[in-house]
C-alpha cells in the first residue's frame, strides 16, 4: 500500500470559530493506481492534496506513505519526503523562468545531493521520455504550454518518486496539449507509477482508473476499477 490515510482531519481556526476543511478522511491508494480526485471548490480537495503531497500537516490522524508515518513530521523532514517520494505537476507549471528546461528538470536532484554529471544524465533521460530532449537548453518562456507541462512532468519523474501528484495539470492547456499530457499520465500508469490527479473536469477524471469525490471535507464517492460504490 502506497498511501494509507486514517481519520485525517484538518481544522482551521478562523477568528473564534473552528472550521474543518477535512473531516475524517480514510483512504488507501495502492501502488500503481491512477486516482482522480474531484470535488467542487471549498470541498477540501486542495487541502487533501496538500496533505497527500506532504506540503501540509493534518491536525489529526495518520498518514502512512510507503509504510512510514509522515503526518506529523517537521518542516525539513517533510521537505526531504517531498524530494524523495513525491513528484509535483502543477496547473501553472511552476517552472523557474530563468533557467533552462534541463536545469528545471534537474532541480529536485540538486536538493537530493546528486552530482552535476549524473543530474544532467538523468534530466536528459526524462526529457527524452517526454519527447523534449531537443529543447533541453530552452528557457520555459520559449516553450509552449504543452511543452512546459511536459518539462514539469519530466521534473516530477526525475527523482523516481513513489507518487506523482498532478494538480489540474491540464487546466491551462488547449485540447490538443491536454490529450498529449493525459496520454503521458496514462503511459505512466501503465508503467506502474502511482498517479494522483486533481481535477474538476469529469472527462479528465475518466482517464483515471479510480475516481474519488470530495465534498464537505469527506470522500463521498469512490469509484474504482469499474466498480461503483457509494461510501457516504
Amino acid at each position: 500500500m502506497t498511501i494509507e490515510l486514517k481519520d485525517i482531519k484538518k481544522i482551521y481556526q478562523v477568528g473564534t470559530q473552528q472550521v474543518a476543511a477535512l473531516n475524517g478522511i480514510d483512504l488507501n491508494i495502492k501502488k500503481g493506481e491512477f486516482a482522480a480526485l474531484m470535488g467542487p471548490s471549498g470541498s477540501g480537495k486542495s487541502t487533501l492534496m496538500n496533505i497527500l503531497g506532504c506540503l501540509d500537516r493534518p491536525t489529526e490522524g495518520s498518514y502512512k506513505l510507503d509504510g512510514a508515518e509522515v503526518a506529523h513530521l517537521g518542516d525539513d523532514e517533510l521537505a526531504k519526503t517531498r524530494n524523495k517520494k513525491i513528484g509535483f505537476v502543477f496547473q501553472n507549471f511552476n517552472l523557474l523562468s530563468r533557467i533552462s528546461a534541463l536545469e528545471n528538470v534537474a532541480l529536485p536532484l540538486v536538493y537530493a545531493g546528486v552530482g552535476y554529471k549524473e543530474r544532467h544524465e538523468r534530466a536528459h533521460y526524462f526529457l527524452r521520455a517526454v519527447g523534449l530532449d531537443d529543447r533541453a537548453e530552452h528557457q520555459p518562456n520559449e516553450l509552449s504550454g504543452g511543452q512546459r507541462q511536459r518539462v514539469a512532468i519530466a521534473r516530477a519523474l526525475v527523482n523516481d518518486p513513489s507518487i506523482i501528484m498532478a494538480d489540474e495539470p491540464t487546466g491551462n492547456l488547449d485540447t490538443k496539449s491536454t490529450r498529449e499530457i493525459m496520454n503521458i499520465f496514462m503511459d505512466l500508469h501503465e508503467q506502474g507509477k502511482t498517479v494522483i490527479l486533481v481535477t474538476h473536469e469529469p472527462e479528465i477524471a475518466e482517464c483515471a482508473s479510480r475516481q474519488l469525490l470530495v465534498r464537505d471535507g469527506k470522500i463521498t464517492k469512490d469509484v474504482g476499477k469499474g466498480v461503483k460504490m457509494d461510501v457516504v
Binding site: D75, A79, K80, R82, N94, L107, Y111
Partner: peptide
C-alpha cells in the same frame, strides 16, 4: 517551487 521540490530551510 524550490521548497515543493525538496529544498530545506
Amino acid at each position: 517551487i524550490r521548497k515543493a521540490l525538496g529544498a530545506t530551510f
